[in-house]
Design a protein around this nucleic acid. Structure first.
Length: 334
DNA sequence: AACTTACTCAACCGCTGGAAG
DNA sequence: GCTTCCAGCGGTTGAGTAAGT
């Protein structure tokens, strides 16, 4: 990690040089930022940095908040289900980490990106090395997702080909996506089959759900609250929302575009989780403070802003028109 | 025990796009 | 239309740590 050594920085619009710290955040800095966010909510990050008495740039504060201090963050290792979902989403979205993160509540784009670049990529690479010597027709052992999913899926060869392209982070999205789409549209087979039938994971309520495969990814705008006009207030990127507004009460078994993280905090009343998290990353905060945060407000992470699901950039909207509204990941392409 | 290598992940950097003036 | 500011994103870096020799 980077040393928390202060360096000289320059305040824009002000010729006075001020010391802007870089590197790791100290517990004191975290506390300042957390307290400020609790009290004032999100605003202009450079103002936050200044007003909170932090000798950090706004950008750094934003990052710290998003990746570590946010109360709705989930910590700990990725579950197999999350891994599965990441692989699946990456095959569709490419390196759009923020989009992937938006479907993994409590996870940050940075976290997912790191996870992908270390664990998954390596795993896939290793497996490719092994399987490359085997017959190309030998089942689906060469399919990365099959690898990841323990052979649950039996994708078409064409899909495998495209997927292998997508696995390469250098080929992020548009070409990849178009290849995907070409297959999607020209192939009678669904290139994005449901992950598997028993969606006993990613259930909003954290309990096992036997939601059918068909509904697994059926994420409509209504499901995520904001699309139906459900979000309350705004905390900028992490809108203040009414707890459980985001479809938590529904039977949504989908990796909602955020929202489920509330469950992590509220349903579990999760002192231990919070403590663990706060301890994990460099330290800090006693449990009471953490809980207070949860009580005071709930930040929606990962840029889900209600109706404004941005996966789509316009081109995507058009491209995906025939793919069962991919932005909401309804994979029922039939 | 000492050293080296591999891995993880927090944080930084540079870029893009949107909003405001 | 141009400039400036800001938020957000993806790629990259590098310190800390675990695993291996």
């Amino acid at each position: 990690m980077r040393k928390p050594d202060p360096i000289m920085g320059k305040d824009k619009g002000n010729n006075n040089k001020i010391k802007l710290r870089k590197g790791l955040w100290s517990p004191e800095e975290d506390e300042k930022l957390m307290n400020y966010m609790i009290t004032n909510g999100q605003g202009c990050w450079s103002d936050i940095a200044r007003n909170a008495g932090l000798q950090r740039c706004g950008k750094s504060c934003r990052l710290r908040w998003i990746n570590y201090l946010r109360p709705d963050l989930k910590r700990g290792a990725f579950s197999p289900q999350e891994e599965e979902l990441i692989v699946h989403l990456h095959s569709i979205l490419g390196n759009r980490w923020s989009q992937i993160a938006a479907r993994l509540p409590g996870r940050t784009d940075n976290e997912i990106k790191n996870f992908w670049n270390s664990t998954i990529k390596k795993r896939l690479k290793n497996n490719n090395a092994i399987t490359s010597t085997s017959s190309p027709n030998t089942s689906d052992s060469s399919d990365p997702r099959a690898i990841m999913l323990g052979g649950l899926m039996q994708p078409m060869q064409a899909e495998q080909d495209v997927f292998s392209i997508c696995m390469d982070s250098s080929s992020s999205s548009p070409p990849c996506m178009q290849a995907m789409l070409s297959i999607t549209q020209g192939n009678p087979f669904n290139p994005f089959p449901p992950l598997h039938d028993s969606a006993a994971y990613l259930d909003i309520n954290g309990s096992a759900s036997a939601a059918g495969a068909a509904g697994l990814y059926n994420l409509s705008a209504a499901h995520v609250g904001g699309g139906g006009g459900g979000s309350a207030g705004s905390l900028g990127d992490y809108g203040l929302v009414e707890p459980y507004v985001m479809g938590l009460e529904s039977d949504l078994s989908l990796p909602a575009l955020e929202g489920r993280a509330f469950d992590n905090i509220n349903a579990a009343n999760d002192q231990s989780v919070l403590d663990k998290r706060l301890v994990h990353n460099n330290h800090h905060f006693n449990g009471n403070e953490s809980i207070k945060v949860v009580d005071d407000f709930v930040g929606i992470g990962n840029h889900w802003n209600g109706e404004n699901l941005r996966m789509g950039e316009l081109d995507w909207e058009g491209l995906l028109a025939n793919v069962s509204s991919l932005p909401y990941l309804d994979f029922q392409v039939e």
